[in-house]
Amino acid sequence: MTWLKLVEGYMPMQMISELVICILVFSIINYSLKRAGMGLPKFWAGIFVWAFVNVFYLKYRIYPPIPFSVRAIYGTVSACGIFMWVSGSQQEWEEFKRPIINVLDAKTGMTKFIRTALLILLPIGLWGFAYNSFLPNFDEPIELRTVHPAPPATTKVHGKTYVLQTASNPYRINPEGKYDQAYSNAHIVDQSMGRLMKDVNSAEENPWDPNAKGYIKHVREGGEIFFQNCHFCHGDNLNGRGLWAFAFNPIPANFTDAGTIAQLQETFVFWRVSKGGIGLPGEAFPWASVMPPWEQHLTVDEIWKVVMFEYWHTGYYPRTWE
């Protein structure tokens, strides 16, 4: 399926629309065959739909792969759905179970052969399946980790204590030099495809404009910090796909995902950046994260600027306490 790529951020939409299209196509074919008097046997149609959804689509199409236990749930649910479909009326149900009865009765040579084969193969298959499940299994263990742990009330960075509820980013300012989130929200990148700056020729929108000052100039300074320190893991597009992203576990946060910085207060991000992986509470696996405690590498000003850059570049704004 390399010819049809799942696009990041659009994956759920893509999958739903693909499945809907498949169901539509199947229904149309089924209907027109029926009209032509060559309707598919219910039995085989049921098996085909089930196999298509569970074996083909969920197993081979979706990436990253879904664990077997989850697919088993989908398999059961879809089997129930298919049973409801084939047993809609007494006649349909009879039609569905006819092939099964035929094999059980074994009146023709063909059904006799199938019955004998099934009688032998089923126990052998069950033995193999049971043997496999009894073999010691050394798959990668699944460890559930809290991604956004509860923040502390205060954090002490470079000797100064910051109250997370009241601290604010000193660089998020309007042209008058006052803290102004409404102003900065108006100058983040555009949320459409590409997430590009709004106007490359405006000193208010382009951090690289020679006349940029105030908020947008600090965005550039934050970006410089980011591309000297953070992109190795969080990636050139802040999507958590840096050079070493997949050498580490947990993998780096994807800031372009609506579930990370877009869900958080700016002070939370300030705390996370300052204290890094080692500063996480236990439920977030501080021992495994390679996220540096950035207070060892950056000044407080640099941390505020890089946090602001992350919001600017992803086109998100921090949540406020209200």
């Binding site: 590409g194 997430r195 490359v200 410089e224 591309f227 000297q228 050139d236």
Partner: peptide
């Protein structure tokens, strides 16, 4: 230009000389 100054300039630099802020590391 709008794409370049949002995404590329950080490594490739304002003049495209491969000397953006990220380049030296």
């Amino acid at each position: 230009k709008r794409v370049y100054f949002t995404k590329c300039v950080w490594c490739h630099g304002v003049g495209g000389a491969g000397d953006g802020p990220g380049a030296d590391r």
